[in-house]
Design a protein around this nucleic acid. Structure first.
Lengths: 187, 187
DNA sequence: CCACAGTGGAACATGCATGTTCCACTGTGG
DNA sequence: CCACAGTGGAACATGCATGTTCCACTGTGG
């Protein structure tokens, strides 16, 4: 019975790879110029092993980009962007994205270029919602699409920074994030 | 007639120094790990000259910190933080700070540590205003001091990014910045 | 016109991150 | 128990940013 390509070592390789990717997000969120050695240490693997999975730094960054793309897609799906007013969808989307944690910081800091993450639909899901919100009148017409997009991302960044820095309850941060974005973009 | 310590070369030295500091803000805003060579080029001086003014990278960063402190103080003074409600003062302060340009990006990105910039009064002027706003009821009591502070900084960062990236009128950006912060922090 | 401040290029030492190669070790599936 | 995938350390080459030294050049104030 043929299962997959690499029946035996698939588990180990996948686990090591995931550990490196996770550690990379964590370390690059702390410092965008984090060393490969630092990342390897954080992942609990040798630097040699890291290079075995990602021969060059850019290969690792590519992997982060791809991983980020999947996570964003998934989060977008969870937020059910089609339901209710566009404004309420933007708020729901923000909550989902907050779950992405360090990934937000890495995207926002420009360490990986999120504009290279095309949705399956081919465009930024938040931007699409903002346009819809301007059309259906649920989002402040005095604010441009770009500006509203910026509000969402910068508040997400802000929320995550507060969440990981000080000892604040996740619940309080989510409440304030939702409240802030909703107030700011409301028509 | 004794004027100052260095009558002749004061002008030249001061000008070169200022050019380096300005270029450093510009380049570090583009990339926090910008090379000293890049900064020297941008300043239109040789790398040797840069090292003559700032023997080590950290000396340059120290100078940026000090310069930022003065600019922030000046901007704070211009905003007349004592006038009107604390909320209106926060909005005025934001407008003044936006004038600081790349300095905002450099502070916000953590390239220089702004928490090391103590006001003459010994504390962050925005934070002081936020506390006052919570006391006088002009700022949303559902949002913590830290959160409101974060809103202001992240929106300033956002505003400056939009202003320097795309070709948008300063006027439109200021209008949206003021509107966004005012709406978000209003009680 | 001369002295001197200010400058920039060339050449160098140094440290450090990156990337590679090789080898010994470990654990697990057959 | 054996074969082999997976691993990590050691040792090395390389590139690049940093920091230093030295010297020739420029411009300006006296």
């Amino acid at each position: 019975m043929v299962v997959t390509q690499e029946p035996a070592h698939r588990g180990a390789r996948a686990r090591t790879r995931a550990a490196i990717v996770d550690a990379a997000f964590a370390q690059l969120a702390l410092d965008p110029s984090a060393t490969l050695g630092t990342i390897a240490d954080a992942a609990g693997v040798g630097r040699t092993t890291l290079h075995r999975y990602f021969p060059e730094r850019s290969d690792l960054l590519d992997a982060l980009l791809e991983h980020a793309g999947h996570r964003l897609e998934e989060a977008t799906r969870c937020a059910r962007p089609e339901d209710g007013t566009a404004r309420s969808a933007v708020v729901r989307l923000s909550q989902e994205y907050l779950e992405l944690g360090d990934l937000l910081t890495v995207i926002f800091s420009g360490t990986i270029d999120a504009t290279c993450i095309p949705d399956p639909d081919g465009q930024d899901p938040i931007l699409a919602l903002v346009r819809k919100g301007h059309a259906d009148g649920s989002i402040d017409p005095e604010l441009t699409d770009d500006w509203v997009l910026g509000i969402v991302w910068s508040q997400l960044y802000n929320a995550w920074e507060i969440l990981r820095g000080r000892q604040v309850s996740r619940h309080d941060v989510v409440r304030q994030l939702v409240r802030t974005i909703d107030k700011a973009i409301a028509a």
